[in-house]
Design a protein around this nucleic acid. Structure first.
Lengths: 224, 224
DNA sequence: TTTATATAATAGTATTACTATCATTTTAAA
DNA sequence: TTTAAAATGATAGTAATACTATTATATAAA
């Protein structure tokens, strides 16, 4: 028994908290591996059930459908990033340094020492990059938003926008810049890997140094 | 017979060019309306066939599947935006003014006098906003990219990045800024409508003035 | 030890995403 | 104008998906 980090995610995302049981943790662990491997569209509860030696019916007792599972995973990821940002900026007082630390934290989130044995943070990061926006780009967005399904991301955006406003109280777009830093990070890692003509940076292996440099440059130019 | 604009899109996107026949144009017209109405996930060829009084089999003679139809529509949109940018910047020599004109062109693309009677540009814009990224966020991206399925967007990004480099030849991220302006425009229109806590701007009705102002501010701060 | 709870095993349904075949209509060429 | 070719429609069928329902069995809590 190791001391496990536990995130409290919105109750409505699951019928039963998967963090509480072996099967639940198996679902999380292997859904990350399978979505990363096959992509979200080709991922099915049937494949997942086969992989973990369980049944579709059992998985449906945890998640209503694969879309809610995706939202769950994405929320989990943003909670993890929020957690990293919190501990990394804890002793930082200068707002400019704080923003740099924030950028570093989320660009390199998957390299931080993993705290949860059943979550492969690096593959979860890949999922957030390739599938993350599908969590909210649906016809159900308003209904799901009203249930608080995107609050992890919104809270994080709020945290970062506060730091931005601390750096430059006159800056008119603290929320837009905050979310744009996240979206840009994800987009350009994806572009560098798959559509390189849409970006200027390159990602060799999993070296995302150039992303960090670019985001810092954008943030500084806009704020300092 | 009116003089119709015609875009030459990648041949691999369709089995038969839908711009050439009444049924084909019906497919384009009503797929835009249905995807806008139901969202891409709930949109099916069966529903489309019913709507236009045709059959699934007939639609499959034009498009292999709904994913390729989506890519087709998105490409069509970017060709349309490229076309607008071209005519709007034709007589503009100052690069700074050119970029402003470009931003205005794509933020207000759906308000420009529509040239093609079977395409509802405003609803197509909504589709690009809500579903556009799903065109490339799939496991087939590399294969589809190698077939040139994303070239309309890449060409546009290239055009804009050239203007950016003309304004500031020292700027290191012309492609990233170009694509980011497009992505930001789409994202923040969506956020303003569905996840307002993720942005600072608001969109009342279809008034996207604040988006234009924000993009101009970002571009100027980064380049001038 | 009993009882509640979780999971597994199995089966079944409606819908989706196609493919195949053949009949009929439209168009275009001879 | 006839004829042939091409496009479309009508119909049927299949494998996979996204579930729901039922019953049996294993496990854990009282």
């Amino acid at each position: 028994m190791s001391t496990q980090i536990r995130f409290s995610l919105n109750e409505g995302l699951h019928l039963k908290d998967p963090q509480d049981s072996k099967l639940g943790r198996n679902i999380i662990q292997h859904s990350i591996l399978l979505i990363d491997e096959f992509g979200f569209e080709s991922f099915t509860f049937k494949k997942l059930a086969e992989r973990i030696g369980s049944t579709e019916a059992s998985i449906y007792r945890y998640f209503e459908n694969k879309h809610l599972l995706l939202i769950f995973l994405v929320n989990w990821y943003w909670e993890w990033v929020s957690y990293l940002i919190k501990i990394n900026t804890m002793n930082v007082s200068d707002a400019r340094v704080k923003l740099k630390t924030i950028i570093h934290s989320f660009v390199f989130a998957s390299k931080e020492n993993p705290g949860i044995e059943y979550v492969n943070e690096s593959k979860l990061h890949n999922i957030v990059i390739s599938e993350g926006v599908k969590a909210y780009l649906t016809k159900d967005v308003d209904e799901e938003n009203s249930k608080g399904f995107f609050s992890s991301y919104k809270n994080l955006a709020n945290t970062v926008s506060n730091v931005i406003s601390e750096i430059n109280p006159q800056f008119k777009y603290p929320y837009a810049l905050a979310t744009n830093l996240f979206e840009m990070s994800n987009n350009h890692i994806y572009f560098a890997k798959h559509l390189p003509r849409l970006t200027d940076i390159s990602v060799n292996g999993n070296n995302v140094d150039e992303v960090e440099t670019m985001l810092n440059y954008f943030a500084e130019k806009l704020l300092f």
